[in-house]
Every structure is written in C-alpha cells, then in structure tokens.
Design a protein around this nucleic acid. Structure first.
Lengths: 218, 218
DNA sequence: AAATAAATTTAGATAAGTCTAAAAAAATAA
DNA sequence: TTATTTTTTTAGACTTATCTAAATTTATTT
C-alpha cells in the first residue's frame, strides 16, 4: 500500500509529465504540491525504491508503468467522485475539487467499479476532463481554446484548463458552462479581449479567461 | 482540524462509554483500537489538551461535549456511507464496514447533509444501527436479542450487536437479515441453542449467534 | 496491612514526512 | 572559459503516532 502522500506525488508527476516531454523537475513538483524541493527529493528517492518512478540525480523523474497506473487510477477515482458530487449530490462544479481530492484516495477496485456503474459509465467529469476507463485508457483533449477562434466562428464549451474556484465561478456567472454555445463577435487586436455571444447574450472576456476555456468548433 | 487517528480514538471512547458508566480505561481503548496502552496514554494526553476528553491519570477518560459531538458526527457519517454503499452501490451488509471506516473521515458538514438528503434521511444503517440526526441526537436500541425470547414468541430482526464479516455473512445465509420474521420453536435447556422458523424454514442457531441478533417482538 | 498482580504511565527509540540552511551540480551570462 | 545564478541535493532537526521496556500506581489476595 501507498500513503496518501505518495499518491499525491504520483498524481503531480503524472500531471506535469503531460506538458513537458523530458523528466519532471524537482522544483516543478515542489510548486505543484506547495512543498519544498528538499522534501520532493526525499520522496522521489522513496518512490524510486518502490519502482514507481525512474530517477537519476539532477535529471528529473519519470513515472514507471507501475507508477503511471497508480496515478491514472487515482485520477479515475477523482473524476468519478466529481461526477457523483455534481450529478447526485447537486454540488456546483466549483465546489467539488477538494472533496474529490480526499475521496480519490479510497482506492478500492470494487468501490471504483461500482461507482462507475452507478453513474452509468461517464466519459467526462464536470469540468470536461476525460475519465480514464477501467483499463487506464484515457482520451487526451485536443485543447482548442476559445482564444484560438476567429471572428464569426461558433463553438461549444467542452472543458477548462484552469480549475480554480474563482475561474469556474466566474464562468458560471457568464453561463459559460459545459455545452454552452458561443460565437465570436469581435477581438481586440491589442490584448485579444473578445466580445462573444453566449446564449444570445453579449459577453466580454479577457484573453486570460478565453485561453483557459476548451471548446469544440461546430 | 483533527487527524484520522484522533477521530478514531474519539469514536472508540464513545463506543466504550456506552457500556460502562465510569471513565473508559486505557486498556479497553488499546484493545478496541488494536494498539498498545502506552500509545493510548500519549494520545489521551493530546486529546485532553484539546479539551476533547477529560482525564485524570490512572482514572480513565470521558468525552467532553466537544469530543462527543465529533464522535457522533463521525458515526453519522459512517452510517450514512454504509447506507449509500448498500442501497446505491449494491454492496452486501458484510462488505461495507471497512470502506465506511475510510469515508467517515471526510467530515465536511455540507457533504454529510447532501448525502443524507440524497439517501432520503435514513434512520438506520444496513445493520440496524441508528443514524444520529444532524443535531447529534441518536436513538439507542433497547437491545432485546433473539436469545431473550421464549418458545412460541414471534419477532422481527432489527439489528446486530456483532459486526464481524463472518457473523453477518452467516446470518445472510440463514436469511436472518433486517426485517426477517422469526418464531421460536424450541430451546435446548443445556446451552440455549434455538430451533427457530425463518421464512417458514427451520434453522438451528447457537446462543453465541442468537444473543447478538437484535429483534423486536411482534 | 503487607505482598502480589494488574493496569497505567514514563522514558527513550523508531518511521514518515516535512523543514531550514548549507553544499554540490547544472545552467546561464559575461 | 570563468563567474554567477539557479536548481537540486544533503545534513540535521522537528512533529506525529507508534513501540518496547522499565517504573509507578492502583487493585486484589493472602
């Protein structure tokens, strides 16, 4: 068995390894987990001994197959619980992250599979992130964001790249939730601020906001 | 915030204080939690500092109001999750204890209340144990057991006093589940073994088993 | 009431995970 | 290429929860 802490490190390393192609740096992990680089080094050594990561001093870490499997199963759990919290317990999409962060560590195969079935095998969580299937296969978003669109183009909101409470809450106020249809009306050349149509209502949205909103052209 | 460990101590002390009337002894807690008396002493000191228990050296401990409130809210959580696991995820009554033991510590007021509502405010868990309401009020069973009945008497199974997997599994095989109707046909004078009728089927049951089955006469 | 047994506490050690400060290695700049 | 900066690691300390072994207190016998 692995501790909650070990699992959180694996998850962080997994997440960070999606961006870069090389090994994940100590500082990046420390940042992601709000801890100190020295603590990270210690934990990496422990994970390396357990063959959950491969690691050479000063060269960053990579997950092994075993480590990646664990990370993915925790992500699966996390996202299934988020679906449960939103769909069954009526939480809002900006409220579920922290709770799911705790629930995800109750990592019992049988519980996960029963939950998956109870929720009718959802493919995406309430933020549009794909839920790995029970074999660990996971669809990766192509990540077209609102900011990639040109004037006149139409699209549907399918996810977010930023999960902070404040961002999610802001989007909800603008009715920019999953499934919302948008059309670009105007783009300010200077700072890429957009004027868009959401449910026939005009909305002004900054580049900071638009580049974190994942959409699908239609 | 309190750690999982602290919460487990509070729960253990609460449980043990239901039996005896005096303070709960160090050894009893050690036994309940499968730990050593010296560890218990250490933890008790910590809980006493936090004003969760009252404690005088060598005199046993008692929960304070604050400590009891926490214990009861954890028990509430535990039992609500058990209902969820059995009713929504189709687990059997002998499978849910350990999972609920983990879920109970995700002790967020909002989650508990939403779960309670989702489950339609159940009054009893899958083993017949009463679920404390949101104010911490808890109905105490009168604890009439099958072994208290006389020949000819009829009753309904409403709970168990022993929660081991093997006992629960055994009961299920005999169809002695919650709501089952039983009638006493015969009692062996020597060792109180009973011959009873469960759903019109004859069953022989030892005193060890019958004295842990809570029933209600009808 | 003294002797023995049982229960409880103390003292000191250990393991997990974290931290600060200092040292070492790697990356970048001059 | 040497100097400087940044990143990473090491060394040593701290906290939480646990343990064993020894000491102390309380309970039970005789």
């Amino acid at each position: 068995m692995n501790s909650f802490t070990e699992e959180n490190y694996l998850k962080a390393i997994y997440k960070l390894s999606l961006n870069g192609t090389q090994g994940v740096s100590t500082n990046a992990i420390a940042d992601e987990l709000s801890t100190k680089p020295s603590s990270v080094t210690d934990m990496i050594k422990k994970l390396a001994e357990k063959k959950l990561v491969s690691y050479q001093k000063y060269q960053g870490v990579n997950l092994t197959k075993k480590g990646r499997d664990i990370a993915i199963s925790i992500i699966r759990n996390h996202r299934l619980w988020e679906v449960f919290l939103v769909e069954k317990l009526n939480f809002k999409w900006d409220e579920v992250h922290d709770l799911a962060e705790e629930l995800e560590h109750i990592n019992t195969h049988k519980l996960t599979e029963r939950l998956d079935e109870f929720l009718d095998f959802p493919k995406f969580d309430p933020h549009g992130d794909p839920i790995p299937d029970k074999n660990g296969n996971i669809i990766q978003h192509k990540d077209i964001t609102l900011s990639d669109l040109k004037i006149g183009e139409k699209a549907v909101v399918v996810g977010v790249k930023e999960h902070s409470k404040s961002y999610l809450n802001y989007l909800e106020q603008l009715q920019l939730v999953l499934g919302a249809e948008v059309q670009i009306q105007d783009i300010v050349e200077f700072d890429a601020t957009m004027r868009i149509l959401v449910n026939n209502k005009q909305v002004i949205i900054s580049n900071q906001a638009s580049k974190n909103l994942i959409v699908k052209r239609n």
